[in-house]
């Protein structure tokens, strides 16, 4: 009797309707996450895991300079790539929002997504072709007589990783900035000029602050995945371009040390979370709700 009543209640039917997606989310997202956190407190034995909680993995991370170095490099590469991406995305988004006639805007946004038509792997390989020892840039400069031997600082280092990431994530940065620029009431810009400011100062005092929510979104969208990017440093990073994801891969699959790999993953997640929260806090003034 009571069971029937329970199933008839609105809350129960709500949870029932929700359950497939809820179960799916728990299984594919929360469960692996919990597993990784648990693993990070274990110890790797020979071909098995020793189930005694310990902080030893985290101590190792702090003890051995390789981990700190690679984490720092990941953060710096991601920060530089994010800065490069967002700074190049801003003028593009501005151009589309302010100078492209309304009926052409969707065409432009569509064109921006063209890089996604090919696989990410192929795009990274294309950068190898462009930046390589016998690549497009070196051949061109040699042919023009600007340089006499190929430049080696282009490929297989952190620079190559930054360039490749900045290109790959450009659309992700352009779209949120474009949206926030589109939302700006154009009469605000006229008001800025009417109140005595030049076009440039109006941009600085009105357009830019109002674009901040989009810029913040772009920064997060680019920074978070690039910190943990694995493919790009593997292919164009060389020895000095390796990042934290390579280290995780190494621990899991080459060394078979799941607990250490998990500890690296968990600390990377923690660090990225803290950085993002600090970033949001610094920009809170611009993110207040508006009518």
């Amino acid at each position: 009797m009571n069971l029937r009543k329970l199933f008839r209640s609105e809350a129960a039917s709500g949870y029932l309707l929700l359950s497939p997606t809820a179960i799916f989310s728990i299984v594919v997202m929360a469960a692996p996450l919990i597993a990784v956190v648990l693993f990070s407190f274990m110890t790797a034995g020979y071909l098995k895991i020793i189930w005694t909680p310990t902080l030893a993995n985290y101590v190792t991370l702090l003890d051995q300079p390789i981990y700190v170095t690679l984490m720092m490099r990941s953060l710096i590469v991601a920060a530089v790539a994010t800065a490069a991406t967002v700074f190049s995305a801003l003028p593009i988004a501005y151009f589309i929002s302010f100078f492209v006639p309304p009926e052409r805007k969707s065409l432009w946004l569509f064109l921006i997504t063209i890089p996604f038509w090919t696989s990410y792997l192929i795009r990274v390989f294309l950068w190898k072709v462009i930046l390589g020892y016998n690549g497009v840039i070196n051949s061109a400069f040699l042919g023009l007589g600007i340089i006499h031997e190929p430049m080696t600082f282009l490929l297989y280092n952190a620079n190559a990783v930054v360039i490749t990431l900045a290109h790959a994530y450009a659309p992700f940065a352009i779209l949120p900035i474009f949206v926030s620029l589109e939302k700006i009431d154009r009469s605000l810009l006229e008001a800025g000029q009417d109140l005595g400011e030049s076009r440039f100062m109006t941009f600085i005092r009105v357009t830019l602050p109002l674009a901040v929510p989009g810029v913040v979104a772009s920064v997060l969208i680019v920074f978070i995945p690039t910190v943990g990017d694995y493919v790009t440093p593997t292919l164009v990073g060389g020895n000095n371009g390796q990042m934290v994801a390579n280290l995780i891969e190494n621990s899991y699959f080459k060394l078979g040390n799941y607990p250490l790999g998990s500890a690296i993953s968990v600390s990377a997640m923690g660090i990225v979370t803290v950085i993002c929260l600090i970033f949001l806090f610094l920009n809170r003034r611009f993110l207040r709700s508006r009518s």
């Binding site: 009431d185 009469s187 605000l188 008001a191 000029q193 009417d194 005595g196 030049s198 611009f286 009518s291």
Partner: peptide, 20 residues
Amino acid sequence: VPANKRPTNMVFQSYAIFPH
């Protein structure tokens, strides 16, 4: 003469109050 150099000021229909 651009708007910012004219001795006029405007009250816009939408008021154009800077939301930030």
